[in-house]
Amino acid sequence: MILHLRRSFTMAVICLVVFGFVYAFAGTGVAQVFFKFQADGSITSHGSTLIGQNWTSPKFFHGRPDDFGPYAANPKKSISGGDNPLVNNGVSGESGATNLGPRSKVLLADTEALVTYWHSMGVNPTPDLVTTSGSGYDPDISPQDALVQIPMVTKATGISPSRLRALISRQTHGAQFGFLGASYIDVLQLNEALAKME
């Protein structure tokens, strides 16, 4: 028993050092030397391309809904603590989904409110645009999600639908290697390109 205890403490310390700190520090070293941009969070001049933002102006394409957008039917802070990169325009939270079940009255009401919101913006919404994501800050939308927003953006910016369609097609990333995951558009990159067109 004493022998087991001595060996257990020794092994626990070895593991703490090797599989805790040596592993994490060596990994951070490799990451920072070879992939610094990615390792730091893919941060560009307008934010991280991997973290969704709230786009409220009709001059821009919008991402998927979350807690804070004007279209949040039900400020989720009261439901599940909010989903958030950590702090968003002064409101703190953490990553997370609504966790509303498939037969939830709250989910039904939220979705109905989002449909109404999109209709008021002149958009006929797709499923992605009325449902929240797993992380709560999905940075992407599908090409279809962008196409249905063209009437809204055209009305606000005056850019013709055909130019917007061309922009969307330029910004579409296909599924990786043609088959892994789904094709998507990074909303931040899409809007950066859109801002340059105006």
Binding site: D40, F60, P85, V87, N89, E94, A195
Partner: peptide, 10 residues
């Protein structure tokens, strides 16, 4: 572009 300030957890 949209006046958003975010703190990102890393």
């Amino acid at each position: 572009l949209n006046e958003v300030t975010q703190t990102l957890a890393r």
